[in-house]
Nucleic acid binder design. Structure first.
Lengths: 206, 206
DNA sequence: CACAGCAGGTGACAAATGTCATTTGATTTT
DNA sequence: AAAATCAAATGACATTTGTCACCTGCTGTG
């Protein structure tokens, strides 16, 4: 199984190389230190799996991954990162990366690589924990920061369901005017302008 | 690494058992044929990984997985299925299963199990392909069915960004009235009532 | 007790939204 | 050339929406 390693810290790539080459099935064809390297090396060497850091100087890992996947949709790219940043995770999934691991658990790296090689997708523990949240619909996640009450949350959900004020009022046994008042304060708290922005906010962030 | 297999087809569990035991690291502690078996066996034997079919007679795999995870949040459960059903995928992720594979690729099963054992999450190829779609945000997928034109799509995206009609008009070099007209026909085509429903529709279905 | 705080409500108002009929100019079709 | 088609616009209209000021009980706390 042929690999390429990309990380802008030379220490990391060399360390990884020794760890990985301890497994007889794995061969590190080359390593690079930038997104540009990644694209060039991938095209030239056609590895089975590409291991790449996300944060890098010139071209970041995500962009490089996107470029590579555009040319070869079957490319197997495993992204590494130090911190689990929700935004990165979603982007990585969208562009079609085959995995997303935290750098810490090097011990867990080898089975992940082998799974990716067979075409499967792998996520590290910390990412796994966040996944259910990213898939919307659970409960009050980052809304807590905004001091949103239970009733307000219920109204937000109504809006995010596409209900009118009247319908929300009926559902919650309130008057339409009250729903409007609530909505007004919700919008102020969240610094949004209208119900549509609220729905978008809720569906994308919660 | 100790495993438990659950499938309501005895043929499958026995076949799986022989395949898996070929690997010296894997031991099958027991196998069962129902969700109830799964819960009981898991509690008694505390396996490292539980392999379970989703569709089963009495208690289905998802419910059983949920029950097990409620008692032991660290349980490693790998779900198997014959068809990739979007709804199942999302549910599985939400309840915190560690993996979701199609039954076909038995050859790929072993690396997946090992990755799951280390706490990572694994998805089969077909699921991987669907994931970006489930995470919304690409382009015109099922909108095509509704005969939505390019310009209409641009307006829909504007709405889904939380823009007002005036803002959309400015962005597209149209008059506000025109935007309203477009929006009106879009809503009619999609059988929706207002822009908020449209935003919800777009963000959840596209 | 008085007073503040809070959940819920009312009424009024401006702005935004959605609908519809109708017009204009350009392009295509016959 | 006449007719049909279409993108874009307009104006009028009823609704919905968001805001604001203010009222009404109820509850707790000094």
């Amino acid at each position: 199984m042929d690999l390429i390693l990309i990380d802008d810290d030379l220490l990391v790539t060399t360390a990884l190389k020794t760890i990985l080459e301890a497994d007889p099935e794995l061969h590190v064809l080359a390593s690079g230190c930038s997104g540009k390297d990644a694209v060039a090396l991938y095209e030239r060497l056609q590895p089975d799996v590409l291991l790449m850091d996300i944060r890098m100087k010139d071209v970041d890992g995500l962009t490089a991954a996107q470029a590579i996947l555009a040319k070869d949709p079957n490319a197997r790219i495993l992204l590494l990162t130090t911190f689990s940043d929700d935004e990165y995770i979603v982007k990585a999934l969208k562009i079609g990366a085959c995995g997303y691991l935290l750098k810490q658990d090097y011990s867990h790296l080898i089975p992940a690589i082998k799974a990716v090689y067979t075409g499967q997708t792998v996520f590290g523990t910390e990412i796994t924990e966040r996944l259910p949240l990213l898939l919307r619909g659970t409960q009050k996640p980052n809304l807590i920061e905004y001091q949103i009450s239970e009733k307000e949350l219920a109204i937000i959900k109504g809006v995010a369901d596409g209900l009118s004020n009247r319908e929300i009022a009926e559902a919650l046994y309130l008057s339409e005017g009250t729903v409007r008042n609530y909505l007004s304060t919700i919008l102020a708290k969240l610094e949004l302008r209208d119900r549509t922005q609220l729905a978008v906010f809720y569906l994308t962030r919660c």
